[in-house]
Amino acid sequence: MPVSDPVARLPVLQTEHSEAPEARFSPGDTVRVIAKATPGHTRCPGYVRGKEGVIRLVYPLAYYPELRAHSTVKRREHSYAVEFAAAHLWIEGDPSQTARVELFESYLEAQ
């Protein structure tokens, strides 16, 4: 029996029409992660909230996790590999360390 991805089989009950297929940010752009924490499921790690980073990679459209977790609406948007300096994230952070975190567009605002 062929194995299929259980997540891919989830029914799309409704798709929001306000999809934005164009990526809002480009590699090299400086962005800030929204500081406000939203209740419920998120894929935005707490340790980068409110922090400034640089777009390194632009990823394809994917379903926005908050909507997929909490509603029957699915909306796709771009995500990005955003680079943060560890020294910016942590007290006494290692100056030779960076973190590249995958973040959805809705988590980011232009700087």
Binding site: R43, C44, P45, Y59, P60, A62, P65, S79, A81, D94, S96, Q97, T98, A99, R100, V101, E102, L103, F104
Partner: peptide, 15 residues
């Protein structure tokens, strides 16, 4: 080595 930078990739999304 001290001269080697470390790049941590956080698998926080689809990739």
């Amino acid at each position: 080595p001290a001269a080697t930078n470390i790049r941590v990739w956080d698998t926080s999304g689809e990739t």
